[in-house]
Amino acid sequence: MKTLSEPVRREALAYLELYPKKEAALLPILHLAQKDFGFIDDEAELAVAELMEISPVMVRAASRFYFMYHHQPIGEFHMQVCQNISCTIMGAETILDHLKNRLGIEAEQVTEDGKFSVERVECIACCDRGPAMLVNEKLHTNLTPEIIDQIIGELDPSRKIK
């Protein structure tokens, strides 16, 4: 049975104070739990339900409804590539293909060493600077294959193009 680490637990309990009903803290606490555990599986859901003293099915409903919660491991560097209209017409498909080739994985997969994962996502609200992607919490815009190579090389020197 998983339990949240002590600092995360304290942070989570502080969220409960921000709302007139404790259930409202569920999304922020799931975000914390995902940071702590890496992803939200059945045990993580139960740990959150236990902490918040709410029913596990309510946690399950939220964790499966919202796309930002992952249910299996993702890479250390999670690359979310926008696939919506503005980015597509500016070349998002080329960017995605280049990423997949460089990393040797398909979208929604993780590299064998656990370093990188790639996910296709919908609009991330920076359409004037497409193609765009998020790498963990950092936004990258006006992407080209060269910029992708640079980003990968910086995150993992062993993958740098010699």
Partner: peptide
């Protein structure tokens, strides 16, 4: 208070936003 969503376009619809704020599905 800032309340972070978790990836669901529908939560921009105002009543879905309310349900989401309350910890429910949007």
């Amino acid at each position: 208070i800032i309340h972070m969503g978790a990836g669901a376009y529908i939560c921009g619809e105002e009543t879905a936003l309310l349900n989401s704020l309350e910890g429910k599905k949007g």
